[in-house]
Design a protein around this nucleic acid. Structure first.
Length: 270
DNA sequence: CTAATTTGACCTGC
DNA sequence: GCAGGTCAAATTAG
């Protein structure tokens, strides 16, 4: 690896420092709590949200650091990191309209009838690789857009019809060298993914969070790379993106990417 | 044979 | 009218 851009390195350092400081705060809170008497139930109740908030911040810092480590292009750190999730953050409502419209028009079987979705994405990420998010996506269209040199691909959840899952995403290649992709997620999954639960990286929408990273991996589960092995066997995942010209892009995390995440034995969501 | 992808048509919002 | 998003028939892959 070449020299890390200084701002990317600094961003990682800042994330780690932030996580460290927050962990210390958490420790203080917990120590203080353990010193209080058992009768002090009221105080205990007030501490609970604070603890949760601190835990979220710690996890957020770690996750941001991991995301930064996972991308080659860490100059634009703001695009790769998760903002702290204040409870005031609103989630764009994109789901429902599509389905409602579809059912409305379905009676007439009018082709192409749909309700245009809100322009606000649920979640957006840029990456030099096409991140596997653990869900099964089915491509339903592609388009060359006005100010883009590359095709934009449209994906919906494979379970859109059997489980009514409204999640969709768009993958737009934004840069040739190094290859860079912007993935924009709309709606969220309400399907039971057939994927084994070892990796589920899901854009989030529950109130107050901008993203969920939920790793339920146990490293003892399978030999070698638990993520990749289970991914390939359990379900068809996002296919290679084939951009019409000569662009054939591997849609995969390297084994080191999987290991990087799995090595932490993470089991969290926020 | 079934499921996924491709691709042109079609619709909506601006 | 244009650009973006989706549908669905045709095609391809497994």
């Amino acid at each position: 690896m070449e020299n890390q851009p200084s701002n990317g390195r600094r961003a990682m350092e800042e994330e780690l420092i932030k996580g460290c400081e927050t962990a210390n705060q958490l420790l203080e809170v917990l120590v203080h709590k353990s010193n209080t008497t058992h009768e002090d139930v009221e105080l205990e109740g007030s501490v609970q949200p604070l603890v949760e908030d601190l835990v979220r911040k710690v996890l957020c810092s770690f996750t941001n650091t991991l995301l930064l480590l996972n991308t080659n292009n860490i100059n634009d750190v703001s695009k790769y990191t998760i903002k702290d999730a204040p409870s005031s953050v609103k989630c764009p409502e994109t789901q429902g309209t599509d389905e409602a419209c579809k059912s409305f028009f379905h009676a007439e079987k009018r082709r192409g009838c749909y309700k245009r979705k809100s322009s606000a994405p649920t979640w957006e990420t840029n990456s030099s690789i096409l991140l596997e998010d653990g869900y099964a996506w089915r491509k339903y269209g592609q388009k060359i857009t006005l100010n883009a040199k590359y095709l934009r691909s449209y994906y919906r959840c494979t379970h859109k019809y059997d489980q009514g899952c409204p999640a969709t995403k768009q993958v737009q290649r934004t840069q040739e060298d190094p290859p860079l992709y912007r993935t924009t997620y709309y709606g969220h999954h309400n399907c039971k993914s057939s994927l084994s639960p070892e990796i589920m990286i899901e854009p989030a929408f529950s109130s107050g969070s901008s993203m969920i990273l939920s790793f339920t991996s146990t490293l003892t589960s399978k030999e070698g790379y638990p993520f990749s092995s289970s991914l390939s066997s359990s379900t068809k995942l996002e296919p290679m993106e084939v951009i019409q010209d000569d662009h054939i892009v591997q849609n995969q995390l390297s084994s080191s990417d999987y290991l990087l995440l799995s090595d932490y034995g993470l089991d969290f969501n926020y």
